[in-house]
Write a protein that binds this DNA or RNA. Structure first.
Lengths: 221, 221
DNA sequence: GAAATGAAATTATTCATAAGAATTTCATTT
DNA sequence: AAATGAAATTCTTATGAATAATTTCATTTC
């Protein structure tokens, strides 16, 4: 059962892929292991992930920005830098705060892309309605995203049309009444749920916040 | 932003698909909604999900059981019933406790497949090593699985070879040192991580249990 | 007679190929 | 230096044949 042991934790190097233009990813090797691609971190990655999650092409996005395709392609691969106004336009187009692109900026280099610390999570969406959402996923390019949602007492959302995603959740604290596929359930701390492409809604009828770890696959942001 | 409102929660009916052999799923309709397929629940579903997650064919599994393909096909679709010895052999083949197949047996009919209550989670694997794992996912057939892992103080696992999965986690309480892709991180309550096909290991160096909500995609069970 | 089998029928997957769309590259322009 | 736009490349989608996997069901077995 015990897997193959590896040399004790290597120290993360701050090294980035040197200069070879044909190698878009840094490569870290460990004895006895195949080379592992470690993605670089720049706003281009986020822009691409956001664009893909909306099923948009470079063409559609650069139209919305009034820029050329070539430039946008370069931006997404970290070969060109969007200006602040560009970033604002992009953020607006996707409905995320501009700060989203800098959510990991102050994290240690070796944690970036792997870890998100409790005190440095990025806020998602607008904190309306008594719902706050924070991104737990350190990297947006994965098969699923993890979100920490806090539902204020009294907060409620009508049942929404089904998204084309699979959702799951775990109630860490508080109580939340969820309506999934037309049926309501009162969920308490420790309860979990999972559903596939169902309409859902929620109400916090309790007197304290409900904290839920929410999983969405594929990511929507 | 607010989605289309729907009639307030319908009461879940205990109805199962009547008898039409050409309709393998029950169908529940709600006013204004397209008919939604509600999967039936029988051990066959679990057997199929387990088999698929191991990349096994009907042929391979029925060989291991000393049964015919046709019969196994029927079992997986709920048209034949495996005997207790059959179930034991199947469970053994997949390394799950036989009770795994009955984890939802006493849950209310309308919750089965959607909700898992805190007090009725199924244990996974063997509770060796100071690691206990409970399945949070109510249904195994999804794109990801959710697990609640509790790491006892002092528990440790050497770095294991990478699985072909994407993993993510959220530390609910306690502290856990995780080694991901050769680098170690001390994670505390509220911290989260995510990685893709990386070797990983863990140690609980603290003096109380570490509780982690773990996501695996695709599921492994 | 119910349970199980095994061969035939059906369905799903894989592989190869081509067409079109999307993206990247890079010489040139702003 | 930043950005463009056309050419080159890569990626995605559609198609169909070949194979593998699964389901069906008439027959056999207990």
């Amino acid at each position: 059962m015990a897997g193959r042991a590896l040399p004790k934790a290597l120290i993360a190097s701050g090294t980035e892929a040197a200069d070879a233009p044909s190698v878009p990813h840094g490569v870290e090797t460990a004895p006895g292991l195949a080379a592992v691609a470690v993605p670089q971190h720049h706003v281009g990655n986020d822009i691409r992930a956001l664009r893909k999650s909306r099923g948009m092409t470079l063409n559609e996005l650069c139209d919305a920005l009034g820029r050329s395709i070539g430039w946008l392609s370069q931006v997404e691969r970290g070969q060109a830098n969007p200006s602040i106004p560009d970033l604002k336009a992009i953020a607006a187009r996707f409905g995320v705060p501009v700060s989203f692109f800098f959510r990991n900026a102050d994290a240690p280099a070796d944690e970036r892309g792997w870890i998100v610390r409790a005190h440095s999570r990025a806020a998602m969406g607008s904190p309306e309605d008594g719902l706050t959402e924070e991104l737990l996923s350190p990297d947006i390019g994965g098969d699923f995203e993890m979100i920490r949602s806090v539902f204020a007492p009294g907060a409620r959302r009508e049942v929404m049309a089904a998204r084309d995603t699979q959702d799951g959740g775990y109630v860490v604290s508080g109580e939340l009444e969820m309506t999934i596929g037309g049926v309501s359930y009162l969920l308490k701390a420790g309860d979990s749920f999972q559903f596939d492409r169902q309409p859902y809604g929620w109400v916090n009828k309790g007197d304290r916040p409900a904290e839920v770890i929410w999983i969405i696959s594929p990511p929507t942001y």
